[in-house]
Design a protein around this nucleic acid. Structure first.
Lengths: 336, 336
DNA sequence: CTGTTAGCGCCTTCAA
DNA sequence: TTGAAGGCGCTAACAG
């Protein structure tokens, strides 16, 4: 049983409970000999401080909340790996909240998160809109709990610490590469729901197309393979012969599109060049292998957690807006 | 600020703090009028009970720990979606512990998990061995915290509630299907590290091969695409012409293998038939589409969480060992 | 049905 | 360097 309390330790070590508490939280304030004796007893009794009591007394939990849109998104999973590794360095635990199918309104949910006494919040939801952003700001100010955005952003303001890449530039660059290789009928495949992050990808695409004075084409579809495959087949039944370049906002959408085209007898990359976004396993497992933007997603997670830790420690990061570098990897779905 | 405490509410509603506590935890014990008045004040003040204080006083946290091997495994992510949905029904929060790259020994880690005052533990680590299983048992008995295994199992004992499918049978069936279609050189591709779950898949395969009196071949490789692709290319440089059937313990390994074979000019499914395990997105996105065992992974997660909740409520499930049904989906990598 | 009163286990001044 | 004592905010008997 974990019945060992601080009193048991104190008694067994022949000190007061205050000394036990100190050896755990402020070891430098305890005489080395006493400290060692206490530590030995702690080991012997297998004593672990009760997190509730500690939290209640100290107002700190060493828990951070991680708010995610959907676990099964590859980007989310990879980010969580990065977050977990970094969190462990600080002995922080992760409390996960999945927004998918969430019914309550988000402000209410965030208040509950705060009531659960987390020291900080990592917000990974890329579907952030203005209202949500404002809510996050209110929560941060009102409850004094730091919030960090990871792989998402609100581009019109920068009060919240943010870690992301330059989605606009990435998309703009991809489009320019296709244009430079003479592609004319370049489509962007994006999600039906408008995300902030995907909006930026759209804008990068639109700008490049405008600069080249070519008519843009944006197709909104589902992230679900069974849905978007049907959609692609239907959409490109007629115009299929014209399309010669594609930028998809997610790897999985790109791969789904490629499969659909190949099934219709089009050649990739000869007839159609395709770029994806993220560099997930889908990109390596597709045939041809997918060319795409390589987003340092694990790093984004780790960095976000690192920043959050600093904010929690009252050691705020100076630059709120942190843009990490990305690469573009050319593989089999594009021509060099 | 979340300065609103139970005292503030009590004062504003002109009742004692006990009544406030009751309207929140045992509403039926409060007169409807009083209850409504208190509830109104709670709303007005935006009062949320402090989780620490509540936990300290009640010994319950409504937190469960979820121990996972690696976030980026598709099965883990999908299971977490199921777990999250179910957990929300009970207003439970999820504390995630990622084992990947974990340095501490697991017993120590589990004790910390328990010290963090979780009400129960969901163990999703399929790499469970006898020692770990014993540790889990000790933890469950010693600290009286229920533990449920999801998509993993320890087949030699059944003291822990377990939710899984019949991996042995699934693998045995796959092998028999290949044998029935006249395949002779059937290989099993499994992970380099021995997992309990994958062991069962191996055994199902071995049994079917033995029944057919054909020499089995087990190849152990990495789950990492960049590693196993090289491995496949090397391995089947010579024997490639003989192999005519494959069962892979994970979809991603199957897809990686298929790509490798196709690159070498072999035809799938004509020359080689391939089965995977899980039915992830990889299976639908590969070309040909992957035939595989369809594991109801989200259900496994939800069911495991449901069972855990029952155990926590002192309403133990009668059958410890719960085997869910699975399907086998035949798609493009096998012949009907 | 409601109020009073002990704690829950720990941290943190304040004294010594 | 150490000990004593007062909470942290809430729940759960026990009275009334």
């Amino acid at each position: 049983m974990n019945k060992a309390t601080i009193y048991n330790v104190a008694y067994a070590a022949n000190v007061s409970l205050a000394t036990v508490s100190r050896t755990l939280n402020n070891p430098e304030k305890v005489k080395p000999e006493t400290r060692e004796r206490v530590m030995r007893v702690i080991k012997e009794l297998g004593y672990k401080p009760n997190a509730f009591a500690r939290g209640l007394a100290s107002k700190r939990s060493t828990n951070v909340a991680v708010i995610v849109p959907d676990m099964s998104r590859s980007s989310v999973a990879e980010m969580l790996n990065g977050i977990a590794v970094e969190a462990r360095k600080y002995d922080y635990s992760l409390l996960i909240y999945v927004l998918k199918d969430e019914t309550k309104d988000e402000a209410e949910m965030l208040k509950e998160v705060v009531a659960s006494q987390v020291d900080g919040i990592l917000y990974l939801n890329d579907e952030i809109n203005e209202e949500q952003y404002r809510t996050l700001n209110v929560i941060q100010d009102e409850y004094k709990v730091p919030i960090v955005l990871a792989n998402t952003l609100y581009p019109f303001d920068n009060k919240l610490v943010t870690v992301c890449i330059d989605y606009f530039k990435a998309s703009h660059d991809l489009t320019k590469r296709l244009l430079d290789r003479g592609r004319k009928n370049i489509y962007m495949l994006t999600t039906a729901r408008k995300y902030m992050v995907n909006d930026l990808k759209e804008q990068g695409y639109l700008k490049a197309m405008k600069e080249a004075d070519i008519e843009p084409n944006i197709i909104r579809t589902s992230g679900d393979i069974s849905i978007n495959t049907v959609h692609f087949n239907e959409l490109f039944k007629n115009v299929g012969m014209e399309i010669d370049g594609v930028i998809a906002v997610r790897d999985s959408i790109a791969v789904s599109f490629i499969n659909s085209m190949i099934d219709k007898g089009r050649r990739v990359p000869e007839d159609i060049e395709v770029y994806g976004f993220q560099n997930t396993k889908y990109a390596s497992l597709s045939r041809p292998k997918l060319s795409c933007v390589d987003i340092p997603i694990t790093d984004i997670g780790a960095k976000a957690m690192g920043f959050l830790k600093r904010e929690i420690d009252g050691n705020p990061v100076d630059v709120k807006f942190n843009v990490l570098d990305h690469d573009i990897v050319e593989r089999g779905t594009t021509q060099r």
